[in-house]
Design a protein around this nucleic acid. Structure first.
Length: 488
RNA sequence: GGUGUCGUAGCCAAGUGGUUAGGCAACGGUCUGCAAAACCGUGAACGCCGGUUCGAGUCCGGCCGACACCUCCA
């Protein structure tokens, strides 16, 4: 099925087609690993994941998906510096080497990042690569040299800057974001950065080494400029190496349009002569209580915070997917609870269908299952319209669950649900399994006592124990000859 | 100041001028010893004021409000 995507470059929904063969080469701006990722970050990664899953399952494409790990920047340096309050014992001992310390801190958060996204239903095996910036210093330097050679960069105070004015004479700067060069908000024009750049809009390609910071040697025209790469250059270099230019899709949060992606376009073209990608796809922000997430508003959550509070990450995944990626998503606990109930409902239906189909899967779609599948896939193919795709699914559940599926239809349904789950990654395609009792022993004791009372038809006693369990926060769900405890 | 986005029922969230979006919650009912789950059913909405139109949540104008970006930011 042909997929349509909104392209931030043309500001239109366009038909998608890979540039080369059946393979989609996609680059996603990944995390800067200086701390645990928060749920706002997660929305961006979830969007990229969802997109690549739709391309695989609905588009039937091969994926070559790259997500970078930024392991060198101001924050990683700050937090790994000697005596940093952000240092954790799990990272190991700090040493005299700034590079060592940087590596220890960033590896720690890289692991936690992969851990987090895995919990969110992202399959690390789907990545072609997760390159780290510090592994591509040489390639970045080569790119910078190209840019200098082509006349679009200058050296000032030991740093290398991209010369936006020179570039603007030859190409447009502001392809993704309409820039009013005369109206940069005053006060932001010269930031806290002490480096000397000629123009506020110029950006750093290579930052001069500062004392006690990690650095790499960089020889330009016979002279060494020890320092480290600027933020934007890493993506340009890694894309070039791992995907070749131009590739198909570049994803990231809207906030990265400017300056990060704008600069990336300029750099790549100035250095390699080619713009990076055919499609730029940006997800909107997640807000909490209709505000940007921020520590000062007290609405800042990492995934770990929420898991600690007892939320299921897959419910968070589904909750985020209930809004279209290009519109703001208002994160609320109620919303996650609603997603949970909706998810369980589909899960119950899967068990029901499994039972009917006896676990047999058919991919030979026809009739009502084919109709549903076409509808859901068409919505997903239309710029990943998850809300409408889910609505189609639930409408079917509302209309057709009581319509008896034939055994053959149930097998098709199981086939479709499997595909659906390849995309949403929110369910178990399996028969219903008895869940292990996870309640504390004293709770189980009461529940067993109630079961006894129930068997003896002492319903007054059984009900009293039910209310007692309810007070203790557990719901008893009776089954044929047992029960299940559900924590409220 | 510049650039955008958005205001839809208790909450979340679609909506491409013309028949019910959908989810969660709520309220009836079936089932169950009672519950839970599931299923059947019910109601409720388009920030305000004008305009265009046979017809506007959907187009135009104004107002009010919320949010984001403008070189740390997913």
């Amino acid at each position: 099925m042909t997929i349509k995507l909104y392209n931030s470059l043309s500001k239109k929904v366009e038909q998608f087609k890979p540039l080369k063969g059946n393979e989609v080469r996609m680059y996603s701006c990944g995390p800067t690993v200086y701390n645990y990722a928060h749920i706002g970050n997660m929305r961006a990664f979830l969007f990229a994941d969802f997109l690549q899953r739709v391309l695989r399952t609905v588009g039937k494409y091969e994926m070559r998906w790259v997500m970078n790990i930024t392991d060198i920047d101001d924050k990683t340096i700050r937090d790994s510096s000697i005596g940093s309050k952000e240092w954790k014992s799990e990272m190991g001992e700090q040493t005299e080497s700034a590079k060592d310390n940087l590596k220890k801190l960033t590896s720690f958060y890289e692991k936690s990042f992969i851990d987090d996204i895995t919990k969110l239903g992202i399959n690390p095996k789907h990545f072609f690569a997760m390159p780290k910036a510090t592994d591509y210093i040489k390639e970045m330097q080569e790119l910078i040299l190209n840019i200098i050679e082509n006349g679009y960069a200058y050296i000032a105070d030991g740093s290398v800057y991209f010369d936006v004015n020179a570039w603007r004479k030859d190409d447009k700067y502001g392809k993704l974001y309409k820039i009013d060069f005369d109206n940069f908000k005053s006060g932001y024009r010269i930031d806290s950065d002490q480096y000397e750049r000629e123009q506020a809009s110029d950006f750093v390609l290579w930052k001069e080494f500062k004392e006690n910071e990690p650095y790499w040697d960089f020889e330009i025209a016979g002279k060494n400029y020890p320092g480290r790469p600027g933020w934007h250059i890493e993506c340009s270099a890694m894309e070039y190496v791992l995907l070749e230019l131009p590739f198909d899709i570049h994803t990231g949060g809207v906030d990265l349009k400017f300056p990060h992606h704008e600069d990336e376009i300029a750099q790549s073209k100035a250095g390699y002569g080619i713009e990076p990608t055919a499609f730029w796809c940006h997800n909107e922000f997640l807000e909490v209580e209709k505000r940007k997430m921020s520590k000062s508003f007290g609405n800042f959550f990492t995934l770990r915070d929420l898991i600690k509070q007892g939320l299921d990450p897959i419910d968070i995944r589904l909750a985020m997917l209930s809004a279209h990626y290009a519109s703001k998503y208002n994160f609320t606990f109620k919303g996650v609870a609603a997603a949970h109930k909706a998810r369980v409902r589909v899960q119950e239906y899967i068990y029901y269908v499994w039972e009917l189909a006896k676990g047999k899967v058919s991919n030979d779609f026809s009739g009502k299952v084919e109709e549903l599948r076409n509808k859901v896939f068409a919505e997903l193919a239309d710029d990943l319209h998850t809300p409408r795709a889910l609505a189609a699914m639930f409408s079917f559940l509302n209309d057709a669950q009581s319509n008896n599926l034939s055994v053959n239809e149930a097998q098709q349904m199981l086939g479709f649900l499997t595909e659906m789950n390849d995309i949403f990654a929110a369910w178990q395609i399996s028969e219903e399994k008895a869940k292990p009792q996870s309640a504390p022993q004293d709770i189980i004791d009461i529940a067993n006592e109630r079961l006894e009372a129930k068997k003896n038809k002492d319903f007054a006693r059984a009900d009293a124990l039910r209310s007692k369990l309810s007070e203790l926060g557990y719901l008893v769900k009776d089954s044929k000859d047992g029960y299940e405890l559900i924590k409220n």
